[in-house]
Simulated scan of single mutants.
Amino acid sequence: MPEAAGCPQASGLAAGLEADRALLGRTSTAERVADILRDRIAEGFFPPGTRLSEDSVGGALGVSRNTLREAFRLLTHERLLVHELNRGVFVRVVTVDDLNDIYRVRRLVECATVRGLGEPPYAVQAVEAAVLAGERAARDRAWQDLSTANIRFHQAIVSLAGSPRADELMRGVLAELRLVFHVMADPRRFHAPYLVRNRQILEVLQSGDAVEAERLLASYLDDSQGQLADAYGRKMSRR
């Protein structure tokens, strides 16, 4: 798999991982390393096509080669990384088929979460925090932060189900979604309109109307998928 044009090597990004060492605690397990790398992928820190050097990533996190390889194996199983013989490990470049499947899962999980909320009031503090973070990022013109806030908004929606398994599933799905976002040439034009819709969904949930919130969310997902699929189509037509 060729590296995406202009994508940095992991060695140039390793310094940003050094602050994450404290998250590992005394036991640097592969699962904890995978959690850190998954979060970094979800935040856009490692773009699609980036080669993850064992020396630079392992050195930044202060973990053994065996621990790092096991973390890579876990993330490869989650379709976030891909291993190429004699070339190394790369952040995966997703396809339009991946995009469609990601949105299929999102509808199954996100819409079902809202549908099953039960009686209000709903504990939407994390949803509100994500909306506020997105609005702050937009004011600061920090478009990558806006993208991250958008992902956290949807993670917070799923967290309303109170299911650790659903939360874990969505962490992987939304990290993979971040790889899809890189197809958009102008992140501001893509993400900014959804910021308004995030607040609308929040306010409807605060009012206790889960039925309307689910309708808004389903329409939101349809529109987002359509925009991304169109962008993939344009990208493929230029090849």
Rank of each mutant, 00 (worst) to 15 (best):
H191F: 09
G25R: 09
P2C: 04
R171H: 13
T76W: 00
F72R: 05
M236D: 15
A42V: 03
N86I: 12
T148H: 11
L228R: 03
S224F: 03
S147V: 05
R104S: 10
R197A: 15
D186G: 06
M184N: 12
L17G: 05
L75K: 02
L68M: 00
N86Q: 15
V211G: 10
S64C: 02
P193C: 05
Y103S: 01
S159F: 06
A149I: 08
Q227M: 10
Q206C: 08
P164N: 10
A60W: 12
F72Q: 02
V96I: 14
L217F: 09
V114H: 07
L75P: 00
S163H: 06
G233P: 00
S53E: 14
R215L: 12
R32Q: 14
L81F: 15
V33N: 00
G12I: 07
V211D: 13
D20N: 04
D35A: 12
A112C: 03
Q206K: 15
V94K: 06
G233N: 06
D97M: 13
A156M: 01
N150Q: 10
A130Y: 04
S159V: 14
R165A: 14
L37E: 03
L108H: 04
R73W: 07
R38Q: 15
A126M: 07
E84H: 14
R51I: 07
V131R: 07
G49E: 08
L13C: 09
G134A: 13
A231C: 06
E78M: 12
R69H: 09
L17P: 04
G25V: 06
V91I: 11
D167M: 09
L174A: 05
L81K: 10
D222Y: 11
L132Q: 12
G226L: 04
V114M: 07
I151V: 14
R21D: 05
R40G: 10
Q200M: 14
G58M: 01
M170E: 15
E54M: 13
T76S: 12
L75A: 00
R189F: 04
T50E: 00
D230S: 08
L17E: 03
R178Y: 12
R87I: 08
L117W: 02
G59A: 10
L80A: 02
V180G: 00
D145C: 00
L216M: 10
L24A: 13
R79Y: 11
V105K: 02
V183S: 05
R234I: 04
G6H: 11
E214M: 04
P120G: 08
A5N: 13
G12M: 15
Y194T: 05
S237D: 05
V211Y: 14
V183L: 04
T67L: 06
R239V: 01
R92W: 08
L174R: 09
P120N: 12
A19V: 15
A142S: 12
R40P: 03
A156D: 04
L179G: 07
Y220H: 14
P47S: 10
A137D: 01
E168V: 02
E212A: 13
D39M: 09
A5C: 05
L75H: 00
A213P: 04
R188C: 03
P2Q: 10
F153E: 01
Q227E: 14
P193K: 07
E78L: 14
Q206S: 11
R32L: 15
L177V: 01
G49K: 10
F181M: 10
L61F: 09
H191G: 00
A138D: 12
A60F: 13
R51F: 03
R115D: 12
F181D: 14
P8C: 05
M1V: 14
